[in-house]
Design a protein around this nucleic acid. Sequence first.
RNA 1: GGAGAGGUGUCCGAGCGGUCGAAGGAGCACGCCUGGAACGCGUGUAUAGUGAAAGCUAUCGAGGGUUCGAAUCCCUCCCUCUCCGCCA
Length: 420
Amino acid sequence: MLDPKFVRENYDYIEKMLKLRKMEGACDINELKTLDDKRRDLSSEMNSLREERNSVSKSIGIRKQKGEACDDLMEHVQTINDKIEAITDSLNKYDTAYNDIMLSIPNRLHESVPEGTDESFNKVVREWGEKPTFDFEPKPHYDLGTDLKILDFERGVKLAGARFYVYRGLAARLERALISLMLDTHTNEHGYTEVFAPFLVNDESMIGTGQYPKFKDEYYRLDRDNLSLIPTAEVTLTNLYRDEILTKEDLPLYVAGQSSCFRREAGSAGRDTRGLIRVHQFQKVEMVKFVDPESSFDELEKLVANAEAILQKLGLHYRVLLLCSGDTSASSCKTYDLEVWMPGLNRYVEISSCSNFLDYQARRAMIRCKSKDGGKPEYLHTLNGSGVAAGRALAAVMENYQHEDGSIGVPEALKKYLER
RNA sequence: GGAGAGGUGUCCGAGCGGUCGAAGGAGCACGCCUGGAACGCGUGUAUAGUGAAAGCUAUCGAGGGUUCGAAUCCCUCCCUCUCCGCCA
């Protein structure tokens, strides 16, 4: 959510930003203005009515103590209460409508974000390594894995349905090794604290990071228990400090954790139906930062570098994209995607997404910081990035390290995790 | 799952229908005292909204109700603790 004051003073900017994101229709700014005025009028009226009621009630107390009659005052309060009741409903209505629009307004965009309507306008900011060359036709990971009997899609379907899979032997061990490499790197070399958190969360958490209420169809929810399966550890790691005021001097705080991630993939029927690229459950290491607002854009660059370090250790060619305005997610101010080269699929595949949310999530989740020396609490800035998606990393390793005979090699960095 | 106890400010803890945003203490900050410190003394010490400010409003786990008035009474839910049951 944006700062209501900022919105009130910058309607023009909001309109412009919506256009850049090609979301003009998403929220009615004129309506917002009207609602804001009405609710402010009503709430100040409410405020003075309550003031009056409180003071009259107080005098009733005083009179009663003295044993004096106070029917006239009680009658007076009754008329005030009638007035309050009369405006409560419409105030609530305006408040709700106002909040609905406020919640649907996407984050501000950073000035460096390129303008564009879709992914073709994303800007390649750098590449690392080169596409490997093969003197045979490289196979996609699902063929390699099926032939080696280490990826079992048929049994995944038997157990749970389409877009589920089973790892067996080397695939299972490789993914575990990948996760270990990632967590070790982030904790030992990048200053993150490892965190292991629940995979099921309550609605407050899903709201805090913005999954609910807007995108409910995309996630699994256990209605009987009012819990949802997390689509990413961003939810738990960011909500760690929901409703808390952190000490400003302790910032920045870096946390990293692995989790399984559960996604319904509701809108993507027919896309990436084969293999590990688009599945209902995958594992991922996530990095989350809580930082001083001053430094969040520097922290974003470091965050991307942390994700890149994993791909570099694995010797995987990738490119870094700065997402254009139309492709940047609603809650993000600026996003970099890492795309890894998959020779078997003959294309780049997104393996990490690193975003600066400014105070957008912090405001929703009420995560603030305050200096030791006192002063006002302020919303801090949150960032997150995949570091990186383990299932896709496994697929990338398989495709990039494949041999002509269908076997696959192991990147140097993973060998110590695979020793028996 | 059953029985009981409880959730109050940074923390401990009082309040159980009226002038309570909330006694008292601890902690912290500032000042005095001191060569310096401890002790002692004094002052201050939640968040949000609104307002130029004084102030006003809301918040005592969450939501609803009773009442002229609720931290205090009633209902629902959540959480914590103790005992029992179950269990990787």
